[in-house]
């Protein structure tokens, strides 16, 4: 069995090395990607999508499929982590934190600081999410900051307090809803007779030009990505901190 695995591995490595010899040189400015693709994006992105940040345009418009399945991968990661940690618990060997202390009497300073910081953090997260068109930012970054604000709440108060405010069912709905919003925008474009994720199809619905419709489409999918990433961060934290039983933890 091991020998067979080794032979298959060696064969795959050989094929990859053979293919690698045909690739353009390392960091070659004359390679097709550098001489046609990227300058094309830089030249046309603004006129085609009305999005001043070319990276966002490439990420959510030209490479829309990639980003959609990336969102799905993150969603699946949260789902699988939940499945792994929640399978019928028989903790024979659980020596990590055998007695978990209740964190009721948390520090007043921590709580006060959290009360000050968390609203600012959440507003900043929404700013980063919405400003992805004009400056570095976007769904992933904004979603991570938003998720971190809930994790900070759980750290400064306790897990129960956070779960009471942001229930697990809602977290899961957000996880799926964000990915669904992304796919839904794509399907809407399909229903309008364009390609999947061809945001220009939204021009008729929104009553704007095609380039502007692509800009709005990018914003919609970024919001979807943001919701999913935020909920995934919170979900993974809930599962990891409580060992899957959602009762106690940090």
């Amino acid at each position: 069995m091991k020998r067979l695995t080794l032979i298959i591995l060696a064969a795959c490595a050989l094929i990859m090395l053979l293919a690698a010899s045909d690739l353009p040189d390392w960091a070659d400015p004359a390679s097709p990607a550098s001489s046609h693709l990227s300058p094309g994006f830089v030249e046309q992105a603004y006129e085609a999508t009305h999005t001043p940040n070319v990276v966002t345009a490439v990420l959510a418009d030209y490479r829309g499929y990639d980003t959609m399945f990336e969102t799905v991968v993150v969603f699946l990661a949260a789902l699988i982590i939940m499945i792994i940690l929640r399978r019928t618990p028989h903790r024979r060997f659980c020596k990590i934190l055998p007695h978990r202390p209740q964190r009721q009497g948390r520090d007043t300073v921590l709580k006060g600081a959290a009360q000050l910081i968390i609203p600012v953090m959440q507003v900043f997260a929404l700013y980063v999410l919405g400003h992805g068109h004009y400056s570095p930012g976007g769904g992933f970054q904004g979603g991570v900051i938003f998720g971190a604000s809930f994790i900070l709440l759980a750290l400064c108060y306790n897990l129960e307090f956070t779960i009471n405010r942001f229930r697990e069912r809602i977290v899961l709905l957000c996880c799926a809803g964000g990915a669904l919003l992304y796919a839904g925008v794509g399907a809407l474009c399909l229903a309008m007779g364009w390609n999947f994720l061809g945001y220009a199809a939204l021009a008729g619905i929104l009553g704007v030009s095609e380039a502007m419709a692509r800009s709005h489409g990018i914003l919609l999918v970024e919001v979807g990505v943001g919701i999913t990433v935020m909920a995934v961060m919170v979900s993974i934290y809930y599962d990891l901190a409580s060992g899957g039983d959602m009762r106690e933890g940090l």
Partner: peptide, 24 residues
Amino acid sequence: DPLPQALVLTAIVISFGLLAFTLV
């Protein structure tokens, strides 16, 4: 070049998912 930036952003997120999965 905007293309590698977008690619790496994708790669970062995927590696985060992989890391969390391995840990769990």
